[in-house]
Amino acid sequence: MKIPFIWTAIAAGLALLPVVLPSNYYLGIMIFIGLNSLAAMGLCLLMGYAGQISLGHAAFFGMGAYISGILSVSYGFPPWLSVIAAVTATALLAFVLGVPILRLQGYYLAVATLGLGIIVYLVFMNWTSLTGGPSGLSAIPYLALGPLSFNRDLKVYYLVWAVVFLALACGHNIVKSRVGRALRSIHSSEIAAQAMGINTGRYKVKVFALSAAYAALAGGLYAHYLTFISPAPFGFQFSIELLVMVVVGGIGDLSGAILGAAVITLLSEILRDLMPHLFSYGAGEYEIVFFGILLIVFMIFLPGGLVQGLDFLRRRPRVMAQR
C-alpha cells in the first residue's frame, strides 16, 4: 500500500513530539487525543460511511474499559489478554444488540442508541459487586509486553498512537474496498443497495460491531493507562462529544475523526481552565452548551467538517491561478 507523504510527515511529527512537549501534562492530553481518535474513527465508520447514527457510543468505550479492568483485576487476566477479550466481547454484544436496534431508522435509531447508552451507564453505576459502582474500579494493572511495562506516559503515548495508525490503516482499507462501497450505498439508498444484492441488515450490524470494537479498544487502553475507572466519563456527554468530534473533523472522512478528536479534546481542556473564570456557578455545564453551538455552526457552515475546509484551502490557490 502506498502511504501518502502527508501521513509519513504526520507520523514523524508525532514520533518527535514528546521531545518538544514541556511536560507530562501535554503528553497526557496527546494520549487522550489518541484514545478519542480511535473511538471517533469507529463512530465515523458507522455514521460517515454507513449513515447510521449512534448517540450511545460512550457505552462501548466504557464496556471496553470495564470488561478489561474487571478481567485483569478480579480474574487475574494478563492485561493484553483482557483488552483483547474486552474488545471481542464488546463487539459481540454490539452485534447481538445491533440486530434489533439497527432495524430502526433515523430518529428511532438515535433514540434507541441513546437508551442503550443510558442503560449501560446505569449498569456501571449500580452493579456494584462487579464494577465498584460510583466509586469505581482501581488498581488496574498497566499493560505489559514481557519485560516492557507501559507504566509511563511516554511509553503509553507511543503505544496508543501506533494503535491509532494501525486502526486508521485498517479502516482506510475497509472503506476503499467492496465492503466500504456497500456501506456507502446503504447510506445513499438502502433499497437500491438491496436491489444490488447487498444484505443491508447484515452489513449495518457488522459495521455497528466494528465501530463498537474501535471504541472498546480505546476504552481498554484507557483503563490500563489511568489504572482507575469510574462511570462518570462514560455518560451521555461523552457520547455527544464523540459525535461532535466526527462532525467537526469531517463526517465522510476517517482521518477527519483524528482531526476532530484533537480539536475537541484540546478545546475541552482549554474550556476546563477557562470556564471557572467566566462563570462562577456550574461552569462544567457550559461545556456541553459550547459543543452544542459548535455542532450547529459546523452543520450550517462546514457540513464536510475541517477536512473539507482544509481541502478547500489547499485547492483555492490553484483555482485562483486558473482565473
Partner: peptide
C-alpha cells in the same frame, strides 16, 4: 456496487 454479489471479500479481507 452493482458488481457486489459477483465477487467476495468481507471486512477482515478488506482491512
Amino acid at each position: 456496487v452493482g458488481c457486489h454479489i459477483r465477487f467476495g471479500g468481507e471486512f477482515l479481507n478488506a482491512a
